[in-house]
Design a protein around this nucleic acid. Structure first.
Length: 699
DNA sequence: CCACCGGAAGTTGACGCCTT
DNA sequence: AAGGCGTCAACTTCCGGTGG
């Protein structure tokens, strides 16, 4: 069994006592120099032989078909068959002195029947030429026959070859049985070479990898997967996460295996992918989607966490969460997710710091907060909560100046002083600006209270406590400005301090004057007198005018109670007066730029702001106090300005409920000071309006 | 038996295209 | 962008054939 035509031919030659097969072949017209030439085999098959012998020869003689040899129905590549040097197993020759064609299969190294390696030399390393016609002994007479025990070689690669050739029976090999034998040899060679070496980029050279390859491929698919898996763990830990091609090294380079081995490669391919998927992420295995990949790529991470990876790297790196090869395990993903979740959003951070959301971005970019981009779908920063807490703590423990004066939130402080909130924040945090106090019941920046000097542009006053300037006294008393100086000279109003250019009146003397006297033209309507008839009207009522003898005094100053009595006017009740006092103190905090009359009357009194651009009126109506505002085209300067900024005016003073009065071309608004809430609201609106005037540059 | 030749297979670096 | 896959080109290696 297994004897091919060419050696059968040789045997015949030998039996005839000739010494060279080639010489004999030449003598019968066969001129080949290659034993595998079909000429010899054809000659043999045409000999008169028994059908059984003929069948056997036909089966075991390699026949060239295209690029293959076919033996016993199995295909071999040309290079897989070589008969140049004759190889043999002494045990087999001992059983029958004939050649076995499988000894000519190049990777066939061990006789699976006797368990011994094939031999190819005799004497001192000489090769048996194919022309040597004898099989039992060598040309030097050495016997090539041995009595060897038969072993169980079913684990051998060679055994499987014999199994496929139909010589022996063996177990089914699910990964190999359905592919051509030449592919089995190639696969075993390739896979064997792979398993015999650690990770390598380039293909290693290897003597005889077939046995190892067969050991890998003789089992089931799952067994192969496990082999690949343990190989990966042992040899490719470093290369594991950067793609399957890199993970397995040379064997998958450039898709080579796929090209060279085509269909038979597919099973290796799948097993490798399955094994790889257990330890790494492979992006492209569409057909293997069911696998639970251990790692995902940065792009997949980006998608899953809805982040912008490129930007997010800063954060990941800082937290030591960035994988150097950009692959992330489930664990990594969850760690990153919780790290991101632990961060504050703009809104949350704004709540911690008591400021607007917009301010957060500024605080991050100027280094007061630790914030990161790319961790949200939008371009918002996410903020490290520790840094936010640290900043909140810093704000809460800022040194305070305890400075007296109006106290404003830093936001209002910024507005009053025409500074952007950011600048104020920066000044406060850098220590350039000290808050006057910090409220314990407020959070972050909202807790800061700044001492506010009245805006320089609005009120220029160098008056100290208890002092009143001439201008302020004039406004408070409702006198003409020419009258103040004479009254002061006469000692009615007391000068407490004099600088080179200014004199200051004592506040007490002004208040005392205010409490007792009033300028009579305020009651012009009640007196039914014209501007020039005030003195006559007073004389008729027998109301005495005071300070008439003071030179330069132009006002008609009378005692308030005397005048009101003479006119039959009810005094404003003390309750209303108290309400007015309440409003005055609220106004001093929220709209210090307005000078309010000290005593409320039933007739309208003007409330000017410090720049005297705008005026409101205040009056008692019954038990209520009403503040009115009139926009009048005849007050041309304010009217022009008002027309330009109508919308803003309406916006900052909603409480006045302004109404246009078309026939008179006026805009009127009014508000009753019924409760503290309204007072505060109104005072704030007055302040806003004053600010608006300054901001829009009307002075 | 040997030097040389040519074909086939095998290696390797490089590149491009495609999908996700 | 990362990764998978296919291809190219240049080169080496192996092997048998060829002619001397």
């Amino acid at each position: 069994m297994g004897e091919p035509g060419y050696t059968y031919f040789g045997r015949l030659v030998g039996e005839e006592g000739l010494a060279s097969v080639r010489a004999y072949a030449n003598s019968i017209g066969v001129t080949t120099t290659s034993i595998l030439s079909p000429e010899i085999s054809d000659k043999v098959i045409n000999l008169p032989l028994s059908p059984a012998s003929k069948e056997s020869l036909e089966r075991w003689t390699p026949r060239r078909i295209g690029r293959f040899f076919v033996i016993s129905g199995e295909k071999f590549r040309i290079g897989q068959i070589s008969a140049v040097h004759r190889r043999f197993c002494r045990g087999c020759l001992g059983e029958m002195k004939s050649h076995r064609v499988w000894w000519d299969i190049v990777p066939f190294r061990i006789c699976p029947i006797h368990g011994c390696p094939l031999e190819e030399t005799f004497g001192e390393g000489r090769h048996l030429k194919w022309t040597w016609p004898h099989y039992g002994h060598a040309p030097d007479g050495e016997s090539l026959i041995a009595k060897l025990p038969i072993v169980d070689g079913s684990d051998l690669f060679e055994h499987y070859l014999l199994q496929r050739l139909g010589c022996v029976s063996g177990r089914p090999r699910p990964l190999l049985d359905d592919i051509d034998l030449y592919q089995v040899i190639e696969l075993c060679g390739l896979v064997g070479r792979f398993f015999l070496h650690p990770w390598q980029e380039n293909a290693p050279q290897c003597e005889h990898p077939y046995q190892r390859g067969f050991e890998a491929l003789r089992g089931t698919h799952q067994e192969l997967v496990s082999l690949f898996e343990s190989w990966l763990v042992e040899n490719a830990a470093d290369a594991l996460k950067s793609g399957i091609e890199n993970g397995f090294g040379w064997i998958r380079r450039g898709g080579r295996g796929v090209n060279l081995l085509q269909k038979s490669w597919k099973r290796i391919d799948l097993a490798q992918k399955e094994a790889f998927a257990r330890h790494a992420r492979v992006t492209q295995f569409r057909e293997l989607r069911g696998f639970d990949f251990k790692f995902i790529t940065s792009q997949a991470l980006q998608k899953e966490l809805r982040i912008q990876y490129k930007l997010a790297r800063v954060f990941l790196r800082k937290r030591g969460l960035e994988s150097p090869d950009l692959k992330y395990s489930r664990d990594d993903v969850e760690k990153i997710r919780s790290a991101i979740d632990a961060l504050l959003t703009h809104k949350e951070c704004a709540a911690v710091l008591g400021c607007s959301k917009k301010m957060i971005r500024f605080l991050v970019t100027s280094g007061y907060l630790e914030g990161y981009l790319g961790l949200t779908a939008t371009s918002e920063f996410k903020i490290d909560p520790d840094s936010a807490r640290a900043l909140a703590e810093k704000i809460a423990t800022l040194p305070v100046s305890r400075k007296k004066g109006t106290r404003l939130t830093i936001w209002n402080y910024a507005r009053w002083n025409d500074i952007t909130p950011r600048k104020v924040v920066k000044m406060v945090l850098s220590g350039a600006l000290q808050p006057a106090a910090i409220r314990k019941d407020r959070i972050g920046f909202n807790a800061l209270r700044m001492a506010n000097d009245p805006p320089a542009a609005a009120v220029r006053s160098t008056a100290r406590e208890g002092e009143v300037t001439f201008g302020r006294a004039k406004a408070l008393l409702g006198l003409r400005h020419q009258s103040i100086a004479p009254l002061a000279r006469a000692g009615v109003l007391k000068i407490v301090r004099t600088t080179s250019s200014l004199s200051f009146l004592s506040e007490n003397s002004v208040k005392a004057f205010l409490a007792r006297y009033v300028e009579a033209s305020k009651y012009r309507k009640e007196l039914r007198a014209d501007r020039n008839d005030i003195a006559d009207a007073l004389a008729k009522l027998d109301v005495p005018r005071h300070f008439t003898d003071i030179d330069g005094m132009h006002d008609h100053v009378v005692e308030r109670t005397v005048l009101l009595k003479a006119l039959g006017i009810e005094e404003v009740s003390t309750a209303v007066q108290a309400t007015w006092q309440t409003f005055s103190s609220i106004a001093a905090e929220h709209c210090p730029a307005f000078l309010l009359p000290a005593i409320l009357t039933r007739s309208e009194q003007t409330i000017f702001n410090s720049t005297r651009v705008t005026r409101f009126t205040a009056a008692a109506v019954g038990n209520r106090i009403v503040i009115r505002k009139k926009f009048n085209p005849r007050a041309a300067r304010e009217w022009r300005w008002f027309e330009e900024h109508k919308a803003e005016v309406y916006r900052v003073m909603p409480t006045f409920r302004f109404q246009e009065v078309p026939p008179r071309d006026l805009v009127l608004g009014a508000c009753f000071l019924d409760d503290k809430e309204t007072m505060t609201k109104l005072a704030k609106e007055l302040g806003e309006y004053h600010w608006l005037l300054l901001k829009k540059e009307i002075r």
